[in-house]
Design a protein around this nucleic acid. Structure first.
Length: 494
RNA sequence: GGCGCGGUAGCCAAGUGGCAAGGCAGGGGUCUGCAAAACCCUUAUCGGCGGUUCGAUUCCGCCCCGCGCCUCCA
């Protein structure tokens, strides 16, 4: 079976077939780096990441390009308010964004920056003017004339035909010819960042960078273009208009849009007090893996209600998966193999693939892995798991984690970096006791813990439970849980 | 107003024209020196009212509620 994806352009779930057999070229709209990324931003980026990972798992080579918008009105406003250059200002937030993305397991795409492609953008505008799709206004700005692109509105399903009739053609008009015409290039204003180019001084409009950079990196026509649902109109509609006018060819074949999330049942907004950056959540003591898991747990086209209760639930769910893997890795099992377990693992892998093939149904993929975990745990309790069953079960977990990326417990070091950042930024008071607790276990090295566990084992062999319990208590205080099972003794950080 | 999405157990949620996945929480057990983990059992008239159908949570209509986009917010 092959991947079927919802295509915003056709408003249908379609089979995804890239233009080249074994390669997918995708472009995702990235962040405007004017502030720290919030949980809503990362919902979209996690969705795209899951798509990318699944495409690769499905055997494609994936070329994934993402833009960094490092010049826009907010950036100009904020940087001048802080009295720093646009570049200084954006560098800080770009760095923060990349750290955050890595923190929640997003694989880094090829990054392209708007400010590094200014001359190309100017050339692009010049060509559009030449072809009659764009015009210059008296102040030196350039606009795209949507009257020249009759399909305008095809992505967002809007009808602009009424406006096309009345569109004027006077290129020396100071204002835009039509209210719907959008800016390709903005003339400089006093005190604003500006570039001198072949089409005059100024800065690029927002949509231009994505057309220019995606075509440069991926070709005039490529497979998939992604972003948050808000970008359908006007951003992607405008990209299509200017790109297809420029090349006379189709732009992207698939349009992938992630739905917005709610926070505690309401639209996230600063005024409601439910606006959280990723770092806010970490400072409250939530693990990156919990956040990623929760963001991934509702299929990307559905509204996700992001709640703190949900975050706790996600943490427990992830722990269950990790416990299971630990059981497989650290346990001892009788020799041999069982057909049931092998087919359980194989079925699970097939179910995960089928779920993701179905428009990335992550909820069903999760259900499949938990079904396996329950059955395998039950079998293990009954001594039904054999040595040779371990590898297939681990393989299923690996397939799952190639997409979800939550099994490896590297939360503590990541959270520690956020804590250090908070201190460096003078935001210590935002560091919650929960975060400090979560970092407890990070104080001890693995080898130190192993040594203690060996001491415990020795004490237990001597049936000296008092000593054994004392060591366990000491480790527990340090946030390390030692578990005694019939398969052996094992430990983990809480 | 235009276009679109959703309302499923205490919470997060999947799904189908024919006995309603999964996770979390709760209750009851089993295992266990203790602790943890794990397992078993247990919790749903699928927003309301009509209609189509042998049969609808799933299709259609109306209503109620929530949400999104409508020029730069992922």
């Amino acid at each position: 079976m092959a991947l079927r994806l919802f295509n915003t352009m056709s408003s249908q779930v379609e089979e995804f077939r890239p233009l080249r057999d074994h390669e997918v070229r995708m472009y995702a709209c990235g962040p405007t780096v004017y502030d720290y990324g919030h949980v809503g931003n990362f919902r979209t980026f996690v969705a795209v990441d899951i798509l990318r990972r699944f495409l690769r798992q499905s055997g494609y080579k994936v070329r994934h390009v993402m833009n960094i918008t490092d010049v826009d009105d907010k950036i100009i406003r904020n940087s001048s308010r802080e009295g720093v250059s646009v570049q200084q200002y954006t560098a800080k937030y770009e760095k923060a964004f990349l750290e955050d993305a890595a923190m929640i397991g997003i694989e880094e795409p090829t990054l392209v920056r708007a400010t590094e492609h200014i001359p190309e953008m100017a050339d692009f505008v010049a060509k559009l003017v030449e072809k009659g799709f764009a015009y210059r206004t008296d102040d030196g700005s350039y606009y795209f004339r949507i009257a020249k692109f009759p399909q305008y509105g095809k992505l967002s399903k809007r009808d602009f035909s009424g406006m096309l009739d009345g569109a004027r053609v006077d290129i020396d008009e100071y204002d835009k010819d039509s209210a719907r015409d959008f800016a390709l290039w903005k003339a400089p204003k006093p005190g604003e960042a500006s570039w001198d180019t072949a089409i005059g001084p100024g800065r690029p409009g927002w949509h231009l960078e994505c057309s220019v950079m995606s075509m440069r990196e991926l070709g005039e026509t490529f497979d998939l273009h992604a972003g948050g649902e808000d970008l359908v109109f006007p951003h992607h509609e405008n990209e299509i208009a200017q790109s297809e006018s420029f090349t006379g060819k189709p732009f992207a074949h698939f349009w992938f849009h992630a739905r917005f999330l709610l926070v505690e049942g309401e639209k996230m907004s600063k005024s409601l007090g439910n606006f959280f950056t990723l770092r806010d959540l970490i400072l409250k003591g939530h693990k990156p893996s919990s956040i990623r898991y929760l963001l991934a747990s509702v299929p990307y086209r559905h509204q996700l209600n992001f709640t703190f209760d949900g975050l706790k639930q996600a943490a427990v769910s992830v722990e269950r998966l990790r416990n299971f893997r630990l059981r497989l890795v650290a346990g001892s099992f009788p020799s041999g193999a069982s057909d049931e377990t092998r087919s359980l693992a194989a079925d699970t892998i097939a179910r995960i693939k089928a779920a993701l093939d179905d428009d990335l149904n992550t909820a069903q993929a999760q259900a499949a892995i938990f079904e396996m975990v329950r059955q395998a745990n039950a079998a293990a309790d009954a001594r039904g798991i054999k040595q040779d069953d371990v590898a297939p079960l681990l393989e299923a977990l690996t397939k799952f984690d190639e997409i979800f990326a939550v099994l490896d417990d590297d939360d503590a070091p990541k959270m520690k970096r956020v804590l250090q950042w908070a201190i460096a930024e003078g935001r210590e008071k935002e560091i919650s006791p929960e975060l400090r607790d979560a970092l407890q276990s990070d104080q001890r090295s693995d080898s130190d813990i192993e040594k203690k566990v060996e001491e415990m084992k020795a004490a237990r062999t001597a049936r000296d439970f008092k000593t054994s319990d004392a060591i366990r208590g000491e480790l527990a205080d340090a946030g390390i849980l030692v578990e005694i099972t019939k398969d052996g003794i094992r430990w983990r950080r809480k």
